[in-house]
Nucleic acid binder design. Structure first.
Lengths: 214, 214
DNA sequence: AAGATAATTAATCAAACGATTAAAAATAAT
DNA sequence: ATTATTTTTAATCGTTTGATTAATTATCTT
């Protein structure tokens, strides 16, 4: 019979290995990561990785699911919130993502890269498709706004792409930008924090300008 | 003595291998690519790859340099062009990049990923630092505009990041976007072509709004 | 045509890698 | 304390991988 202590001990080293895997996988990607790297990073023997997780791929899948969850997390709640306006939602989403990305700068490039490496895997193994069952409330709000201005707004897909592009891409290109401009990590993060206020403003401006035009 | 024919023949198969390497490296990245994949893609024997290029890494470096060159190409000319206005430059840059990215959709993710895999390599082996020796003319134009409106514009780095984010990111997240929205490759490309006109407009709007505010 | 050089391949090597095994160390159960 | 169970390690196995070698085929020179 398993005691509490035993379980906690296992969970501890198992968690350490998972944390090490998270670090190495995120930095180097699946293919470039050797199980020996994870062992070294965790401080444990190589064989322990296969003792707790059956294989490199199984361990990777766990990390991947956690990362995807972190990425999609709470967004469903925000975009379906009945108590916030459309523009308030933009502010909340951007602020939420920038905070998360400052804490996990390597996340988006990791995810995007692995999606390209095996596009079907995420569709089959990881169900990222159940974000919304009905129509998202934010979509309803968008349509209402479009109707109120009886104008055909620009394709909402453009607005969506703009939002995630402005928010996420600087982190994807972080090293490139910092290398080109020579700014430090602190200054870069300060710039990103500035964008928490700027991006919703910009996106709002873009939406407004597309309405005035028609 | 080498004849014309011999050189052409070599260049032909050498080019075929390079093209195969370009395809496989761009799709799978350096670590996930096996020299046998390149051999299979090219239709030649494995040993030929090391016959023409000395190693996998040497071949990769060649592809990488070509990709970086394609990416930086002609931008130096555009941003230093004395005959175009600042906003005309925006239009030209965006149009140039979107055309290039539709032709090479995998390029940005490949470059960004390999930069993260080995940040020092690009600084040491590949000299992407010699784009401008003096101050870029586009910077001068920016300062002139700021002075003319005697307003402290938003940090130009933000504008620069916005420009490349809006332009490049949709291609980086192409598979993710297409999977989430279900649109076809043709429709996606059509959207991107729309953005050739939209992005400069949006960026211009963002710049203008930042001036009016102060 | 004959010989020399270059291009291409099959076979193979050594190192790296993911995974397994068997033994040792640590912890729990009696 | 002794046994049983779990955790951790060292050693190793079988494959894969980048690279080389030696032999074969094709091409060029004369």
């Amino acid at each position: 019979m398993k005691s509490e202590q035993k379980i906690e001990k296992n969970a501890s080293t198992e968690e350490k290995i998972k944390e090490a895997a998270r670090v190495v996988f995120t930095r180097k990607g699946y293919a470039a990561t050797r199980t020996r790297d994870i062992a070294e990073e965790s401080g444990y023997n190589l064989a322990l990785i296969n003792y707790y997780f059956r294989s490199k791929e199984k361990l990777f899948d766990i990390i991947m699911v956690e990362h995807l969850h972190l990425f999609m997390q709470s967004i469903a709640g925000i975009v379906n919130d009945r108590s916030t306006t459309l523009f308030e939602k933009l502010e909340i989403i951007v602020a939420h993502y920038i905070d998360m990305l400052i804490a996990n700068p390597g996340l988006p490039l990791f995810i995007l890269n692995e999606i390209n490496a095996d596009p079907d895997k995420l569709i089959s193994k990881v169900g990222i498709g159940e974000m919304a069952h009905g129509e998202l409330y934010i979509i309803t709000q968008w349509k209402e706004m479009a109707a109120a201005n009886n104008a055909q707004l620009v394709n909402p897909l453009h607005i969506f792409m703009n939002l995630i592009s402005l928010t996420i891409f600087p982190f994807v290109a972080c090293l490139l930008i910092r290398n080109r401009t020579g700014i430090s990590e602190e200054n870069f993060n300060a710039l990103m924090l500035e964008r928490k206020k700027l991006i919703p403003m910009w996106v709002k401006t873009i939406i407004m300008s597309s309405m005035q035009q028609t």
